[in-house]
Design a protein around this nucleic acid. Structure first.
Length: 427
RNA sequence: GGUGGGGUGGCCGAGUGGCUAAUGGCAGCAGACUGUAAAUCUGCCGGGUUAACGCCCUACGAAGGUUCGAAUCCUUCCCCCACCA
């Protein structure tokens, strides 16, 4: 088997899980199309999808044509891969709205100009109008139930049950690959390792129904050394959408990556060169407390996802909050910058400013999707445990009146929960 | 269609009339230690109220019922699993 620069790169980065044997030959034959499908079951991509987005990016950097397929059609069915139980069906309107948002996100990563311009395609284009009888004859006839039952995505569900709807998912994905092969000469499908079964079903279909070749490359599942699920924080998934996960929080997620994972994630998620990554590995080994690798990781990824200005702001805010500065010494400009990156809460406008207590401030940060405490009971618990700080000063459980100099720049109060969660209260 | 087993807090999983807001594990949060790590130790971990003790509300698939009192007993319904047809 021959190799290819793209495969070597993926191999070195630890991104090559499985691939079909002839992939290298195909890549050498000239610019080829490769695609990855994205499910619009959520309103945004998250950092788990970022890995495969980078796969497309790398494909393009090596001169090939990336195709991002948004599953406006398959999203209505639901992929059983990796799912332990049947999922509720998504609302078609929601899927359509999600599809639009995800398209917009994908557009930021790929280059849509030039000889190997990227393409964005929605499989609703061909799936929604598909007729049942035609589908059974043209696609269903090429698969035996025996073959389908062999797939992990189905096998794993034999105990818990799987609906015919989800069982059929792999056929729809296979059909996608066939359509892309015919319409756009897409020869390779990439994806996470959990997609292998669905991808090979597509390869089978293309070979049997069109007598054409098709190929697969999959990346491993991203793991954490701590054994937790990658990409989850206390607030849930880390999203690429700035309104769901702020650029500051996004940046912080990467800064906080475990030492043991930093080198791997640099390879997975950044476009940094091999030399640069190896230098960062060495830095991490010699001076782990500097966390140079984490910062490089955070900068590279945040810049790509949110842009340079958002990165600069996130870095500035991180410096203010974690640079050991006394909140009372923050400049007004610094405070304004903070407001853009950490959640802002307001106190009831009719409150008597002179009679405000610490509880009024803390109750303000219990409100909304970015609330620091999930309930007032939770807030009281945190106070008991000494995990709440007002302008850097630890609060006791008692209700205290606010002093005039508690208001930074005359109108702000900085609230901290634990060591990393911040909010600004505007009075 | 028949028979048997089962549905408990984010997840797994105990619990067969009061001592149960419900053992335990995982995940999560806070504190100590640190490097905004990891590991470890300690505490917390349904909601409201309280500085606190406490008090109140909601909860064990759904709805009714028995009882002074039910996650635990009875009835009906819904869903899942296994085996048989």
């Amino acid at each position: 088997m021959r190799s290819h620069a793209l495969l070597d790169d993926l191999q070195w980065r630890g991104l090559l899980h499985q691939h079909t044997d002839e992939v290298a030959e195909v890549l050498h034959s000239g610019p080829v199309g490769g695609y990855i499908g994205f499910d619009p079951t959520a309103p945004s991509l998250h950092i788990g999808s970022l890995l495969v987005v980078m796969l497309l990016k790398r494909l393009q950097l090596h001169g090939h044509r990336p195709v991002a397929l948004v599953g406006g059609g398959t999203g209505l069915i639901g992929d059983p891969s990796g799912k332990a139980s049947e999922r509720p069906m998504s609302d078609p309107q929601e899927v359509a709205a999600n599809t639009a948002r995800i398209r917009a996100q994908l557009e930021r990563f790929l280059d849509f100009t030039g000889d190997n311009a990227a393409r964005l395609i929605d499989n609703a284009d061909w799936l929604v109008g598909l007729r049942a009888v035609e589908f059974m004859r043209d696609v269903g006839k090429h698969f035996t139930i025996n073959y389908m039952l062999q797939k992990d995505s189905v096998k794993g569900r034999m105990d818990g049950g799987i609906s015919y709807t989800e069982f059929s998912y792999m056929l729809l994905q296979a059909y996608d690959f066939l359509e892309l092969r015919r319409r756009y000469d897409v020869r390779i499908q990439l994806g996470g390792s959990d997609q292998w079964g669905n991808i090979t079903a597509g390869i089978e279909l293309i070979r049997r129904s069109a007598s054409l070749d098709a190929h697969a490359i999959t990346a491993p599942l991203v793991t954490t050394s701590a054994g937790t699920k990658f990409g989850k924080t206390e607030a849930g998934a880390v999203w690429l959408d700035a309104t769901l996960t702020s650029p500051y929080k996004f940046f912080q997620f990467w800064v906080n990556v475990d030492d043991r994972d930093a080198g791997r994630y640099l390879r997975y998620f950044t476009l940094l060169s091999r030399d640069e990554i190896e230098r960062l590995d060495a830095s991490l080994a010699e001076h782990p407390e500097k966390r140079e690798a984490q910062h490089a990781l955070a900068r590279d990824v945040t810049a790509r996802v949110h842009g340079e200005p958002a990165l600069a702001a996130a870095e500035e805010v991180s410096g203010l909050l974690f640079g050991g500065a006394d909140p009372k010494s923050l400049s007004r400009e610094g405070l304004l910058a903070l407001q853009l990156e950490i959640p802002v809460f307001t106190i009831e406008p009719d409150a008597d400013r002179a009679a405000l207590t610490t509880y009024d401030v803390l109750e303000a940060v219990c409100v909304g999707t970015e609330a620091l405490f999930k309930s007032k009971a939770d807030m009281r618990r945190m106070l008991q445990q000494g995990g709440v700080y007002l302008n850097g000063r630890r609060l006791g459980p008692e209700r205290e009146p606010l002093a005039a100099d508690d208001l930074l720049a005359g109108e702000f109060i900085l609230v901290r929960k634990g060591s990393k969660s911040y909010g600004i209260v505007k009075v």
